[in-house]
C-alpha cells in the first residue's frame, strides 16, 4: 500500500514539531517528536523501510517496535484524512 499527503493539507514546523491543518474539515493536528520525524520523511517520499531505518537510527529502538508504531501512525493519519491511500 502506498500513501500520499492529502493535497489539501497545510503543514508547518515549529521547533521541530509538525502540525497539520485540514481546511476542509477545519481540524488541526499536532505530531509528537517521532511523529514529526516520520512526517518529515513521508514528505520527502521515503519508503517504509527507509523510514524504519531512520527512526531506528535516531531513537535506538527495535525495528519490530518501529514497524508496529509506524503502521499505527499511518493508520491514524489515514483515518484523519491527512494521508490518502493511492493504491
Amino acid at each position: 500500500m502506498k500513501y500520499k499527503i492529502n493535497p489539501d493539507a497545510v503543514y508547518r514546523e515549529i521547533n521541530g514539531v509538525y502540525y497539520v491543518l485540514l481546511p476542509r474539515d477545519k481540524t488541526i493536528h499536532r505530531f509528537t517528536d517521532v511523529g514529526s520525524l516520520i512526517w518529515r520523511l513521508i514528505d520527502k517520499n521515503f519508503s517504509e523501510s527507509e523510514i524504519i531505518k531512520e527512526v531506528v537510527n535516531q531513537y535506538d529502538v527495535e525495528e519490530e517496535v518501529v514497524l508496529n508504531d509506524l503502521e499505527n501512525f499511518i493508520k491514524e493519519l489515514v483515518e484523519k484524512k491527512i494521508l490518502l491511500k493511492i493504491e
Partner: peptide, 10 residues
C-alpha cells in the same frame, strides 16, 4: 477550504 487561506490562518 482553500490552501491559500488556510496558510494565511497558520
Amino acid at each position: 477550504s482553500s490552501k491559500k487561506y488556510a496558510n494565511l490562518v497558520l
